[in-house]
Each structure stands twice: as structure tokens, then as C-alpha cells.
């Protein structure tokens, strides 16, 4: 039973990275392309963004119901970066909606756009920093150690910041590939193809930087990957897919591009899961929090699982219908006129 809950937790997190990530990346992409992408991003995101962000809620709910000590420990040690993520989420979601629904007027629209773009960047960066703090596991439960050691040290370090940068580039990359599939105009295709290439290169550099800074912080991340067979396979597969991505980018093969980018991201996330498991939160001066030590009692697990399975059975088909309606549906007359 615990395994199934863990698998659903993993899938939710993965879907949040893939769908929510492309969505956060949309804002970053607008920033990189100096607003050139905003029309396409807006049209592509608007109908689905709220549903995309539900995956985060699902992750949080599974954590506090199923793994309550993970939830409380992480939110205590990483209170500050999580608070920054939350402020980013508020600003970003609001600004995006305001831009979409407020009446057409230049100055307010420009303000919403810039809040949306910068808060997308800001939120994504601190999501990465928070994740970095969890991976690094420099977390203490001895709250008498002073403010810096307890609440700053876990995330205010080179590794967490490198991971922040890595996630920013990853999400921007996802959004670029996604946006490429949404436009046929030649100048756009050329621009986004160019951006995608730059992003791929920087992504590889940022990945290397994350491994290097982990060593710097005394966390043998490379070693962990090397010694976990599934992690190693994930990394190798993600790397092998790189040339494929490059070729398809040249040929502008949209469906293949999305597939490969999604596959690579999945591999990165799975690689992380494999080294993280079964320790969920590392404690630097005490007993690590593992799946076994934090899982809720069986009665709770059973009810959680029932709710999740019913949820999956209802939500997945409905979500599919939503995507089908807006992504692959024929454009309506109005939209053809608009584009």
C-alpha cells in the first residue's frame, strides 16, 4: 500500500515538474524573448494553468496525510525559501489572470506582464533552492542551534542556488519546446529554436555546476548517482537523448521534440527519486526521516489510497479531455482570425 502511495506521490511531483514547469517556464521564456512569446504563452497556458498547479496541492496533501513528519520538518527548516515560493505563486497567478482578464490598456498590461515574468523566474528559482535544500539534507531538528544553523544553512548554500538556476533553465527549456509546438509562423519557429539550443547548452552546464557545488558543500552527489543503478541509467538515457533532441530541433519535428524533452525531464526527476529513496529527509545531526519512519498508520494509508485512486480515475480522463479540447482541437473561427 505504501508503495502505491509513494508511486502516486512521485507521479504527481513529476507531472508538476512537466506541466507546472512548462507553465512557470512560460513566464521565464517571455522574459528571455523580451515579450515576443507572450501571445502564444498566454493562449497556451490560460485554460490549463490552474489544473496544472493542482499537482502541487496533491503533493502537499499526500505529504501531510501520509508522511506528516516530512511535511512538518521540511516546512520548518525551509520555511524561508518556501515562503518566497508562496509569495511568487500568489503574484504570478494573480498577475497572469489580471493580464488575461483586465480590459485592454497598455500600462496596466505591461505591469502585469512584468510581474508575471519576474515572479515566474523568482518562484522557479526558489522552488529549485527548496529542492536543493531537501537533496542536500543539511537539516537539523535541534532548534536550539540558533537561527542561521536551523533556518538559513539548509538552503543558503552554493548547491541549492545552483539547483535553483538549473530548475529555472529546465522549466524555460520545457516551455520553449512546448511553445514551439504551438506556433507555425516561421520567424517564431526560428527564434524559439535558437532559444532552445542556447537553453540546452546552459542546462548541461548548470547540471554540471550542480554536481560540482554539491561536492563543494561536502555532499557526494555524483558518487550517489554513480552508485545507484537506476539513477545512472536515468542520467545515461537523458544524455543519449540530447543528440536526438538536437536533430529534431533542426527538423522542427514538434511531436518528437515534446516527447524527448518530456522523457529527459522524467529521467532527471526519476534519477533524483532513486538517490533520495528511501530516505525522504536527511537530518545532519540525528536520525534521517525515511519512508518507514514517517509513514502514517495503515488506516490512514488505506483512506488516502482510496481517495487517490478515485481521484486518479476521475481526474486523469477529465484532464485528458481538457487537453484534448484546447490543445489538439481544431481552432475555432475566432481564434483563426486572431492568429
Amino acid at each position: 500500500m505504501t508503495e502505491i502511495i509513494l508511486i502516486i506521490l512521485g507521479i504527481s511531483l513529476l507531472l508538476y515538474v512537466l506541466l507546472g514547469g512548462a507553465d512557470f517556464g512560460g513566464g521565464i521564456l517571455e522574459l528571455i524573448s523580451r515579450g515576443k512569446a507572450s501571445g502564444i504563452v498566454s493562449r497556451a497556458i490560460a485554460p490549463v494553468w490552474e489544473a496544472n498547479h493542482m499537482w502541487l496541492i496533491l503533493v502537499v496533501v499526500i505529504l501531510f496525510v501520509g508522511f506528516p513528519t516530512v511535511y512538518s520538518t521540511v516546512l520548518t527548516a525551509l520555511h524561508i525559501p518556501v515562503l518566497l515560493v508562496l509569495i511568487g505563486i500568489i503574484l504570478r497567478g494573480s498577475a497572469f489572470t489580471f493580464r488575461h482578464y483586465d480590459i485592454e490598456e497598455e500600462t496596466p498590461k505591461a505591469i502585469y506582464s512584468s510581474i508575471f515574468r519576474y515572479s515566474s523566474l523568482f518562484t522557479t528559482f526558489f522552488l529549485g533552492v527548496t529542492t536543493g535544500g531537501i537533496i542536500l539534507g543539511d537539516i537539523t531538528q535541534d532548534y536550539s542551534q540558533g537561527f542561521y544553523a536551523v533556518y538559513m544553512n539548509p538552503w543558503l548554500n552554493w548547491f541549492s542556488f545552483s539547483l535553483g538556476i538549473f530548475v529555472v533553465i529546465l522549466f524555460a527549456f520545457l516551455a520553449t519546446i512546448y511553445t514551439l509546438g504551438e506556433t507555425k509562423e516561421k520567424s517564431h519557429v526560428e527564434r524559439f529554436t535558437r532559444i532552445a539550443k542556447y537553453l540546452i547548452i546552459t542546462l548541461v552546464v548548470a547540471g554540471a555546476l550542480a554536481f560540482a557545488t554539491a561536492e563543494l558543500e561536502g555532499h557526494p552527489l555524483f558518487f550517489e548517482f554513480y552508485h545507484s543503478i537506476p539513477s545512472m541509467i536515468s542520467v545515461v538515457l537523458a544524455t543519449i537523448a540530447l543528440p536526438l533532441l538536437w536533430i529534431n530541433l533542426k527538423r522542427n519535428n514538434r511531436q518528437m521534440l515534446r516527447l524527448i524533452a518530456g522523457f529527459q525531464t522524467t529521467m532527471i526527476v526519476l534519477g533524483w527519486f532513486a538517490i533520495q529513496f528511501p530516505v525522504l529527509v536527511k537530518i545532519n545531526d540525528g536520525v534521517d526521516i525515511t519512508v518507514q519512519s514517517s509513514i502514517a498508520p495503515r488506516a490512514t494509508q488505506l483512506q488516502l489510497l482510496i481517495a487517490l485512486i478515485v481521484g486518479v480515475l476521475v481526474v486523469f480522463p477529465y484532464m485528458g479531455y481538457l487537453y484534448k479540447t484546447f490543445k489538439f482541437g481544431e481552432k475555432t473561427a475566432d481564434e483563426q482570425k486572431a492568429s
Partner: peptide, 22 residues
């Protein structure tokens, strides 16, 4: 773990609401 059950159902309900509203 005790009062989480309604939250897990709430997750599904809100998910459906968000999709339907979209």
C-alpha cells in the same frame, strides 16, 4: 494522518472544479 482524509477528497474535488472551470 487523522483529519487528512477530507483534504485528500478536497484535492480531487478542487481538481475537478479547476478543470471544469477551464
Amino acid at each position: 494522518p487523522i483529519f487528512g482524509m477530507p483534504f485528500s477528497w478536497e484535492g480531487t474535488a478542487f481538481f475537478v472544479e479547476a478543470i471544469a472551470l477551464g
